[in-house]
């Protein structure tokens, strides 16, 4: 495939991309770059603007302002060329369920002008990769939700896109299928050297990304590697209980300069920079008997909480998610 300029290894450059829907600013001046070969993640709650951003980059909707260039191609002025380079797995279903899996893939191959003689081979390859080869001649309407999702991922790969967009690739799937799909994605990155842009609001999932942009209300509020982001959140939290908490508090104050108010509870909570290096020394020198100790590493949720004062996993969001996945199965939801 063709590409224009390649001065650096950014394959996608997004500059203050903005999209308004009658007064509501869904995406608000977002800027970022994606480098060749990386897995880049968009992490954010429902309605943050993840899908809208993807839709703009993939030429499905026009930005209100701002711009983006994919391999140097303008997403507004050179839509055809942009479309040629990308694969997209939509958040909402997009298969024709009255066709078989193979027919869906064949349709896609012809739209992308995959050479006729290689279509069968490529369809076979991707179907095997997602373990659907044996079911290739079944109508898609007889597939389970997870199978449909896997087929969509397979379809996104047939034309060897340079950049693959995965919009919530595991939404509404059971943990087992989710893991499987993540395995495919990791494989894709290592074996096929495809650059991947994914969105998710599952925290665990975003950890496989090389870099993550945390997005909330249309704005990117942080962008870094997962481990750097977690360092931003600062500290790990430790919970200890002992047979003499008063003495323990004094010990912490004298040795580690950690100040804790004593209260009647039988657990003490405090924060340290790095729990794994702190705990061995702490236990070794501790003057009282420790009954229990646990440490919790900071997570991306803490980062989110720190930055926005909200919990990424608020119950409202997960309820909506469940509702949405139910609808997904019925295949009626529009994005």
């Amino acid at each position: 495939m063709e590409s224009r300029e390649k001065t650096n290894n950014n394959i996608l450059e997004v500059k203050s991309l903005t999209r308004k829907f009658n007064g509501l600013t869904a995406v608000d001046g977002v800027s970022f770059n994606i480098r060749e070969g990386e897995v880049f993640g968009f992490l954010g709650p429902n309605g943050a603007g993840k899908t809208t951003t993807i839709n703009m980059i993939c030429t499905l909707i026009k930005p209100t302002s701002g711009n983006a260039k994919l391999y140097g191609f303008d997403i507004v002025k050179e839509r055809r060329r942009v479309r040629n380079c990308i694969g997209l797995v939509f958040q909402d279903p997009s298969l024709d369920d009255k066709l078989t899996a193979m027919e869906n893939l064949y349709f896609h191959s012809r739209l992308y002008n995959v050479p006729r003689e290689t279509i069968n081979k490529r369809c076979g390859e991707v179907l095997k990769m997602v373990d659907l080869y044996d079911r290739r001649n079944d109508l898609v309407r007889n597939y389970s939700g997870g199978m449909k999702r896997r087929l969509e991922i397979a379809r996104g790969l047939i034309h060897y896109p340079k950049l693959l967009f995965l919009d919530e690739p595991t939404i509404g799937l059971d943990p087992q299928t989710r893991n499987k799909i993540w395995d495919y994605i990791v494989q894709l990155k290592s074996k096929q050297k495809i650059t991947i842009f994914l969105t998710t609001h599952y925290l665990e999932e975003s950890e496989i990304c090389d870099r993550i942009a945390i997005i909330d209300r249309g704005k990117i509020i942080a962008l870094d590697t997962p481990s750097n982001l977690k360092k931003m959140a600062g500290s790990d939290s430790i919970t200890v209980s002992s047979d003499n908490n008063r003495a323990l508090i004094d010990f912490l104050k004298d040795n580690f300069n950690i100040n804790i108010e004593y209260d009647e509870g039988n657990e003490i909570k405090f924060e340290v920079k790095d729990s794994s290096s702190f705990i061995p020394g702490f236990i070794k020198n501790c003057p009282v008997r420790i009954l229990s100790i646990s440490a919790r590493h900071s997570t991306l949720n803490d980062v989110f909480l720190n930055l926005t004062g909200k919990d990424l996993r608020d119950s409202d969001a997960s309820k909506r998610d469940r509702l949405r996945s139910g609808m997904r199965m019925r295949g009626r939801l529009r994005g």
Partner: peptide
């Protein structure tokens, strides 16, 4: 129908004119 069931998007993002 294709729009309602999402299939139209698959056609619209393809490089076909």
């Amino acid at each position: 129908w294709d729009r309602e069931f999402g299939f139209l998007k698959e056609v619209l993002i393809s490089p076909i004119s």
